[in-house]
Amino acid sequence: MSETTLSTGPAAGPGFSPADRYRDIAVHLDGSPEDETRLAHAEALAVSFQARLTGIFVNPLPDPAVYVGDFGMLAVDDLRDAVIENGNATEPRLQERLARLAPPHELRRIDASPGMLEEAVASEARWNDLFVATCPRGRDNARWSAMVESVMFNGGRGLFLVPPQAPLRSVIRTVLVAWVDNRQSARAVAEALPFLRQAGQVHVVTVSEKAHGRMGGAEALADITAHLVRHGVEATATVLGTEASPADGLLAEAGRVGADLIVAGAYGHSRFREWILGGVTEDLLANSPLPLLVAH
């Protein structure tokens, strides 16, 4: 791997102000053991930014479309009753768990069938500044891929994705921004500004198959890094030239700089399997050992 780095120099802007904080953070809950991982990260973020935390308890009802005939309708009614009863047992446990959190908080519950459930969760995401969920990898977490996809593409806000069972990082000090000159990357940077303002180091990184320009392509990042400086963010711009996949190059660079968070645009169409741009977003979701902040 080859790289070219351009430092912006010291930040010339105001210090971190209350206006740059996340005020409302939502976290996906489903009653599974993974709730503890999500809650640990969400609580730490809420404490760091002095934000209010809302737990979104998602209780998926059976899909009536897969049942036909009178017998099928009876079956779906029985299943629906069982799911609601299970949700009624889970909700008090989640209320008790949230009561032990330090930040101001509340619990909201969504009982809905596929399609309506994903839209309901995206609607909750829209009035929050950040939505915390698990990367949809592995059999247990992949069942939430449609919900994550809906928040990502329809929620309109940043999505903070935690690898399954990822240990909590005490402070997010170093952030790697995976930059491409397009709308999605711009959205991700805008949604991540509170993190960038708090970070001690910010690395803006792009991957190029062939180095070009007098600085190997780093001059192409001059505008975005200068923009960050005007927001009080000192950033280093790096162009990676790699024979590996872009995602592998970004993950290797994240490890090299000791990143605690990767910020990236979410590319693609309506489904995870259709994501484009060399599968970078999908590869990061599948393989990143670090939390991801993505936006579309």
Rank of each mutant, 00 (worst) to 15 (best):
E3V: 07
T4D: 05
A11V: 14
I25A: 09
A26N: 05
L29A: 13
D30H: 02
G31Y: 12
S32N: 08
A42V: 07
E43I: 11
A44Y: 06
S48T: 14
F49L: 14
G55E: 09
N59F: 01
P64E: 04
V66K: 01
V66E: 08
V66L: 05
Y67L: 13
G72R: 11
L74I: 13
V76P: 02
V83Y: 00
A89H: 03
T90K: 13
Q95A: 14
E96I: 02
L98I: 01
A99V: 01
A102M: 10
P104T: 15
P104I: 09
D111W: 08
G115M: 03
S123G: 08
S123Y: 12
N128A: 15
V132G: 06
R143L: 07
W144K: 01
V148A: 01
E149W: 00
S150H: 05
V151I: 00
F153S: 07
N154R: 10
R169E: 11
S170Y: 08
I172W: 10
R173A: 09
Q184R: 14
A190R: 15
P194E: 10
R197F: 01
Q201W: 04
Q201K: 11
T206N: 06
A211V: 01
G216A: 08
H227I: 02
L228S: 12
V229H: 15
R230P: 10
H231A: 04
A235E: 01
T238Y: 00
D248R: 11
L250F: 10
R256A: 12
G258C: 06
L261I: 05
I262P: 03
R271T: 03
F272M: 06
R273T: 14
I276S: 10
I276N: 15
E282M: 09
L284H: 00
L290Y: 15
L290V: 10
A295E: 01
H296G: 07
